[in-house]
């Protein structure tokens, strides 16, 4: 995955609560066996009508969207299905951080494995971001901080290990592979076998 230490960018705002991963990428796009070009399917049914025409007032269709690397979303973003295609499609589209007051567990976990930073902020900060689309903010993974153009700085929680992987741009499989001896010992010493 691509490393990220600190990034300043504009936000795009999707002020809907409980956006599920079926909206982020509908199931019919999960028939792919690769990740290539998956950003095209991002929010497919909200970006395009049944005939494939662009829905102009959807935030991700706004002119200049390519400059917006951060998605500010309503509460509980990414609930529902565990499909990793959701963060894959966001990253492929160009999004590097999702900012909300609450982000669903599995989506958050999947995001961290793909260099998509889940930024959880307090309600006041969230409300300010929802009300100010296009604001230029800084996500600083190193410092665990989100900086607003108002001068306000808030810290966000991020697991130490996941943060390390994002800062270095490394995947977690290698770390697990370093534990093969521990895993073998565990398997041999169990009081029962599955």
């Amino acid at each position: 995955m691509e490393k990220l230490t600190k990034l300043t960018s504009k936000t795009t705002v999707l002020p809907i609560d409980d956006v599920d991963t079926d909206q982020i990428i509908p199931a019919r796009f999960l028939t792919t066996t690769t990740r290539e070009g998956i950003g095209k399917a991002l929010f497919a049914d909200w970006r395009f009508d049944a005939q494939g025409n662009t829905i102009k007032d959807f935030p991700l269709n706004a002119p200049g969207i390519a400059e917006c690397k951060f998605l500010v979303a309503g509460r509980n973003f990414g609930c529902g299905s565990s499909r990793e295609h959701a963060p894959w499609s966001l990253v492929d589209f160009g999004i590097r951080a999702v900012i909300s007051s609450e982000i669903a567990d599995i989506f958050r976990n999947n995001s961290l494995k793909n260099g998509l930073v889940p930024v959880i902020v307090d309600n006041d900060t969230h409300q300010w971001l929802l009300a100010n689309p296009g604001a230029e903010v800084t996500v600083d993974v190193e410092a665990r901080e989100l900086r607003l153009p108002t001068g306000k700085t808030v810290t966000f929680p991020i697991d130490n290990f996941a943060r390390h992987c994002i800062l270095e741009g490394i995947d977690q499989t290698g770390f697990l592979m370093q534990n093969v001896d521990n895993i073998g010992r565990f398997e041999n010493n169990r009081s029962w076998q599955p």
Partner: peptide, 19 residues
């Protein structure tokens, strides 16, 4: 439920990294 990266972790190591 897990994502596809973690599916790979379990295939390769039978383990996950979990809090």
């Amino acid at each position: 439920g897990i994502g596809t990266t973690e599916v790979g972790h379990v295939l390769a190591t039978q383990c996950l990294l979990q809090r």
